[in-house]
Amino acid sequence: MARVVVDVMLKPEILDPQGQAVQRALPRLGFDGISDVRQGKRFELEVEGPVDEAALARIHDLAESFLANTVIEDFTVKIEEVAEAVK
């Protein structure tokens, strides 16, 4: 089993009030020195079979047409190594 991670972020020019709310809470919590926070979405896809070029291309299409709305969001697709579960 291989995992492919799709990260989706609002485009940089679009206002992210959720990220701002998080950022404004930071000084109160004692976290200083963080000038900006933007919040996104992470999708972890457990892929059956090999993650070859064809599989990645399909996931890219899926991300572009469904997981992200590319009018307002950017996305990245990456393969993640899954550590064997420790029994």
């Binding site: 206002l15 009030p17 307002i72």
Partner: peptide
């Protein structure tokens, strides 16, 4: 309609959350 791209642009959460 915006998600279907029949209308341009997109809809996001209210700015006041």
């Amino acid at each position: 309609l915006t998600e279907a791209h029949l209308l341009p642009g997109g809809m996001l959460g209210n700015d006041h959350l």
